[in-house]
């Protein structure tokens, strides 16, 4: 990517200190950057650290138990060093987030209009009337039918798909530069998912915002992302432009993931499986964290932590055996 990145994460490390003194290494030295107008997919299975990373960007991790180090630079400002007041001004304004559960992320005791208007007034000021007009325009933009009436409804009157649209409208209220969407369609039916993904593409084209899309669904990634980062056990194990990643993955974990999903576009008699389990994150292994489950493992893999290296231009892999094509040719 040529332009200066909008957000640049460097050496992000997140540790949770449990009540019992136990330390969990949730995220380890994650480096990421997203340029203006680009969409980055953050992929991985439960517990890989993808959601925690996004919460760290938003500054939403509990201060008492989460130890966050490294740097998260947003437009040049290090969010980890910024005082709370500045973060509060950024959140919901230039930094916005959509969560997975549209059922629980809206306040049930306020109308959807109140909730959108609150955001606008907090960050933009102006009169309540103009904020209300803007809220109606936003609801129209996310294709909510008859927004003038819908704006005064409570969340429980809306279906799941509608609520997710309201969440998106709220996130867009102040024209964010960066939108983080954490599994935005996972709770929705496929026909609604298709509508929401279409909406996100449309909004991205119109606003030029950067998007970080967190998902476990490789199909969603292929449809909307420009670049993909695959996470495993708190680390980024592979990063590549989307076409590259699906055509020639360079980390065995990605190969396993691609082989294990049933596909509509071709038939496999037997699906690939990734045997074993994710390592215990209280004591992550010293070497490659995937080594114990990796069929291509060598002794050297467990000796030292493999670095994230560029295999081909723009395509990074944390595997000392990459390029993987050489293993099967």
């Amino acid at each position: 990517m040529s332009a200066a990145p909008l957000i640049e994460i460097e050496g992000l490390r997140i540790r949770f200190h449990g009540d019992d003194g136990r330390i969990t290494h949730a995220v380890d030295s994650v480096d990421l950057s997203v340029a203006n107008g680009a969409t980055l997919g953050l992929v991985g299975e439960s517990g890989c650290g993808k959601s925690v990373t996004s919460l760290a960007i938003m500054g939403l991790l509990p201060k008492q138990s989460a130890e966050v180090t490294g740097a998260i630079r947003f437009d040049g400002l290090d969010l980890l060093q910024a005082p709370d007041q500045i973060l509060r001004d950024l959140r919901g304004n230039r930094l916005a987030m959509i969560f997975q559960e549209p059922m629980t992320s809206l306040n049930p005791s306020f109308t959807i209009g109140d909730q959108i208007i609150e955001t606008i007034l907090r960050h933009r000021g102006g009169s309540r009337r103009s904020a209300r007009e803007r809220a109606i325009a936003l609801l129209r933009r996310v294709h909510i039918p008859s927004p003038e009436r819908r704006i005064d409804e409570y969340p429980h009157k809306l279906s799941g798909g509608m609520r997710q649209r309201v969440m998106i409208a709220m996130a867009l209220a102040c024209d964010p530069r960066l939108l983080i969407a954490d599994e935005p369609t996972t709770a929705l039916d496929v026909t609604l998912q298709a509508q929401i993904l279409e909406l996100m593409r449309e909004l991205k084209a119109a606003s030029g915002a950067a998007i970080i899309l967190i998902t476990h669904d490789l199909g969603v990634v292929a449809e909307v992302c420009d670049e993909v980062a695959v996470m495993y056990a708190g680390e980024i194990v592979e990063r590549a432009p989307v076409g590259e990643l699906f055509a020639s993955p360079q980390h065995p974990y990605t190969v396993g993931l691609l082989g294990s999903i049933p596909r509509l576009d071709h038939r496999a008699e037997q699906l690939a499986t990734i045997e074993g389990m994710v390592p215990n994150m209280a004591q992550p292994p010293a070497g490659c964290r995937f080594a114990a489950r990796c069929p291509f493992m060598r002794e050297a893999c467990t000796a030292a932590r493999p670095p994230l290296v560029e295999v081909t231009p723009g395509h990074l892999s944390r595997c000392i055996r990459a390029p993987l094509e050489l293993l099967v040719s």
């Binding site: 496929v190 026909t191 998912q193 298709a194 199909g219 990634v221 449809e223 596909r263 509509l264 576009d265």
Partner: peptide, 10 residues
Amino acid sequence: LLSAIPLPQP
């Protein structure tokens, strides 16, 4: 339904 499913094929 079928066309709504995102394919893992960019």
